[in-house]
Design a protein around this nucleic acid. Structure first.
Lengths: 106, 106
DNA sequence: TCCAACTGCAACTCATTGGTTGCATTCTGA
DNA sequence: TCAGAATGCAACCAATGAGTTGCAGTTGGA
C-alpha cells in the first residue's frame, strides 16, 4: 500500500505553469500576494487562489508581517515528494523486471 | 535556469487519482486499455484518454502485441522527475537560508 | 472467409478551475 | 483620527478536462 493519498494534491498543485512561476518567485524570497501580483500579469485574487492551493498541498506556508500576509516556499516538502516518487518508480521497475524474468523462464 | 518546461506536464499527469490507479495497475504488469477498463469503473475510452496523457508525459510506453496495444509503465521517468524535484527544493532552501543569514547580519 | 474482439475517432455533457470584477473589511502610520 | 494599503469574500465567465455514447475501421483465429 503506497501512500499516494497525500501525494496527488501536491502533483495537482505542481501541474500548473503559473503556480511554478509563483513558487520560483517565492524561491528568491518571501512575498505577499499583492507583491507577487505586481510581478505577474494576473490579478492579486488569482495569485491568492494559487497560494491557497499551494498551501493546501503543503508547498508554502503563510506568516503575518504587520498588515501583510507573507508566503514562504517549503523546499522540504518537494524533497519529501521526490523521495516518495523515487521509491514508487523503483518499485514498479523491480516488479516488472521480476515478471519479465518469470516470462523468460517459460 | 531550471528546466521546469518538460516537468509541468508530468505533474499535471500525476495530479489525477484515476491516472495513479492506472499507473499502479500497470506497475503490476503490462495491460491494454480494454483490459484496464475491465478493472475500473470507467469506460475504455476514458482509460484510453488517460493513457494518452500518461504517454505524452513519458510515464508509459505502448507496444503492439497481436491486435492489442499493451501499455508499460516507465518507472525511470519517475526517478528522473524525483531527482529534478529534489534539486529544485534544495536550491530554494539554500537561497532562503542565505537571505535569512543576510537579514540577521543587519 | 467471416465473426468477434480490439482500437480509433467524433460529438456531447457536466464539473472543475483559472481568471476576472466589485465591494467589504481590517489595520498601519502619519 | 482618517486616508490608504492590505486582505477577504462572492458572483460571474470562459476554457479545460474527465467521462460518456455511438459508430467506423482493423485484425486475428477458428
Amino acid at each position: 500500500m503506497t501512500t499516494t493519498g497525500t501525494l496527488v494534491p501536491v502533483f495537482a498543485a505542481l501541474g500548473d505553469e503559473t503556480r511554478w512561476n509563483i513558487l520560483a518567485a517565492l524561491g528568491e524570497g518571501d512575498a505577499s500576494a499583492s507583491a507577487l501580483a505586481a510581478r505577474f500579469p494576473v490579478t492579486r485574487q488569482a495569485i491568492a487562489k494559487h497560494l491557497t492551493v499551494l498551501q493546501g498541498a503543503g508547498l508554502v506556508e503563510s506568516l503575518r508581517v504587520g498588515r501583510e500576509l507573507r508566503y514562504r516556499v517549503l523546499g522540504a516538502q518537494l524533497s519529501e515528494t521526490a523521495r516518495k516518487l523515487d521509491r514508487i518508480g523503483a518499485e514498479w521497475d523491480r516488479r516488472l523486471a521480476a515478471i519479465k524474468r518469470i516470462a523468460e523462464d517459460l
